[in-house]
Each structure stands twice: as structure tokens, then as C-alpha cells.
Amino acid sequence: MARVLLRWALFAPLKSSSSLPFVQLPRTLHPPAAPTLATSSFAAAASPNYLHLPDDDLMAQCDLDTFKSSGPGGQHRNKRESAVRLCHRPTGIVAQAAEERSQHKNRAMALTRLRTLLALKVRKAIDLEGYTPPPELLQILPAKSTIRGKDVGPQIGPNNPKFALGMQALLDLIYALEGSVSGTAKVLGLSTGALSRLLLSDDSLRMAVNELRTSKGMKPLK
């Protein structure tokens, strides 16, 4: 019986942050040290899927706590910290944004990055027996997938905000299948080549998959 129960695994920090600038992971994120780790059935039941939260609720789970030590601020400073750093309390994931010209917009940008990071780093266990891919995963699959019904609508790409949800579900599946691209492709009704192309279409997704494959002694996708 291929029942794979993964723990809420948080994998090691991305080495290259080229696609996700300003992202850092605190040391406490290494799985052995994370106090929030629990068996998945518990964790899955107890924790909501953060990506389903509206912006305000997700923001309420975050500390905006970086720039505390830098002087009086306000009228004293020109262009003080329009940069924003969000620390998501439940997971410890940190997302920053500095390139926008207003703090307001940097907040929105940091929140978008946080969603991507949550998708990349928070894993949910999947019971492979009787697994059906959720609609958000079907939406990011190419049309040629044999399990993708006609009612799913056009394929959603990495630039669509909804891509993060699909990416999260896809990574959950790949983790459950221990990094096997061909195994995952089979479940999703795709050729191995077609799934590889999807995995390579987004830098952060590619890096997450390769991180996993490398940790399992498999060749990274190129």
C-alpha cells in the first residue's frame, strides 16, 4: 500500500535567490528544530491552507518587525524604510520587498512573495490511494493532460496569482512520490516530457523540485 505520510517538511533554504530576491529563511526553519512539526494528519487537520486566506487574514498572521533599530523615523528621515519585511508567524517564513517606491506597494509585493514561499515550503501529506488532483492543480496543467476535463478552463501560467495554489498541490504530489517526475506525470495524465516542461517553466518551482531530487540522490531537471 503506497500510503505516504509526509510530515510538514520545510526544506532547506534556496541557495540561489535570483528569482526570489530578498527572501531569507531563519535558522529555525530547519526541520529538526521547528517546533511546529507534527505528523501530517494532525497538522493537516489543524492548520488551514494559508494560501486560501484572504490578504487581510494572512497579513494578520505576519509580523512586520524588521526595521526596529534604525532611529526616530517620521519627519527625521528621507525615504526611511519603504522596504517591507513580513515574518509569517505560524511557519517562520520571511518575505521582503524593497524595489517598489511606496511602502504600501512593497507590502503587497511582499505578500505575493510570501504566498509563493508558502506554496514552495509548506508541504501537506497526500494519501496516494484514491488521490484525485484538486482543481487548482488541474488548472496549471497543459491541455493535453488526459485527466484534465474540458470544464477546467484555460491553463494558468506562473504570472497568474492562482498559480501558487496549483504549484503547492503539484509539489505535494511530487513529494509524495519522492521526486519521481515520471511517476507524477503518470498520475497527472501527462508524458514525462510535458511535466518536465511545466516544472521548468517557473524558476522557483524548478528549484524546489531540484532541491528535492538532489536530496534523494536523483539528477536535477534541466
Partner: peptide, 9 residues
Amino acid sequence: VLIPRPETE
């Protein structure tokens, strides 16, 4: 004119 500050947002 004072340049508006991020805090004031």
C-alpha cells in the same frame, strides 16, 4: 513642500 513619509501612509 514636505515629502510625504511612508509612516504617514
